[in-house]
């Protein structure tokens, strides 16, 4: 392969690579709150806050991009605290509904805010995001979640997920841990929002609708939530799949479009049916299957 065709390949797929990273970060933000058993669907709102505040800072201040990103990471985490204090008393589906409500409030706030150009959103945001920044952010998030696992806090989170009242009688301050994880997830979402805004040149309120949260949740579920990197695997798979299918249908000579969507849906369904613990559980399942076969042979 010549270097120019390699370059073509990169040019064709660099935005896919960027979105794999962004979606991975968003999937981790859902996973973070999920790791202590809380389903928060306010992640798109946190993402919106990160995107808007970073874009506004880019337009109106001379601050370096790193400072913008830091603000876009911290502000959603701060906002999540007053939201979490009342809302995290709710459980399961009630928490999900309350956080959807918050998400809609934030979205509609931006739709009606003249300062941010209402429903049209902010356009011509300078491109400041490089792909390495996206992957540095994703790597940082993975590192943090990896180190939490197996720590005193990590065990506390697992205990809360399994049986919150019992965890509390071990002296675990469940409310504080749940709030901390909501804030951490909000920080990841805000950072992803800021990076995305400065990659796609725009901030539009319709980007941060309920369907966006559903996408994040699907990444996490398809990738698997029993390990911390599962959501990233799911995001990579589901972000790359349409591109791969487009390439295949083009080679085979089929018209892209409806068929691609159909196959996309079929693959999703197959994963959920046959890999209920997500794609990230595949290596373990293959290992178990092989071992069972070896033992059957030995017997």
């Amino acid at each position: 392969m010549t270097s120019s065709s390699l370059q073509d390949l990169w040019l064709t797929y660099q935005s896919t690579v960027a979105f794999i990273g962004l979606n991975g970060l968003l999937a981790l933000s859902v996973y973070t709150t999920l790791s202590c058993g809380q389903l928060s669907l306010a992640q798109a709102a946190f993402m919106a806050i990160g995107a808007y505040v970073s874009a506004i800072l880019t337009f109106h201040s001379g601050a370096p991009f790193a400072v913008n990103l830091a603000v876009a990471t911290l502000l959603p985490a701060l906002v999540s605290v007053p939201l979490g204090l009342p809302v995290l008393r709710l459980k399961g589906v009630f928490l999900a509904i309350a956080t959807i409500g918050f998400g809609e409030v934030v979205r509609i706030f931006f739709v009606n805010l003249d300062y941010t150009n209402g429903a049209l959103g902010l356009t011509a945001v300078p491109q400041r995001t490089s792909i390495w920044m996206i992957y540095a952010a994703l790597g940082t998030a993975l590192f943090v979640l990896w180190r939490i696992r197996g720590s005193r806090a990590g065990y506390a989170l697992e205990a809360i997920r399994e049986d919150e009242p019992a965890a509390r009688t071990m002296g675990i301050d469940a409310a504080r841990y749940k709030l901390a994880m909501l804030a951490l997830g909000a920080a990841f979402a805000g950072l992803a929002g800021a990076l995305e805004a400065h990659y796609t040149y725009m901030v539009s309120p319709s980007t941060y609708s309920f369907t966006r949260v559903v996408d994040m949740l699907v990444y996490a579920v398809v990738g698997g939530t029993s390990v911390f990197y599962g959501p990233v695997v799911g995001a990579a798979f589901l972000t790359a799949l349409p591109e791969v299918l487009r390439e295949i249908s083009a080679r085979v000579g089929l018209a892209p479009g409806p068929l691609r969507l159909f196959v996309n849906g079929a693959v999703l369904l197959a994963v959920i049916l046959f890999l209920p613990e997500g794609i990230s559980s595949l290596p373990r399942r293959i290992r178990d299957r092989l071992r069972a076969r070896r033992e059957a042979h030995a017997a």
Binding site: S151, R152, Y155, A156, E158, A159, A167, M170, G171, I172
Partner: peptide
């Protein structure tokens, strides 16, 4: 280990 939560300084 979860039960030792209160005793651990980590």
């Amino acid at each position: 280990l979860v039960g030792a939560h209160l005793k651990r300084n980590a």
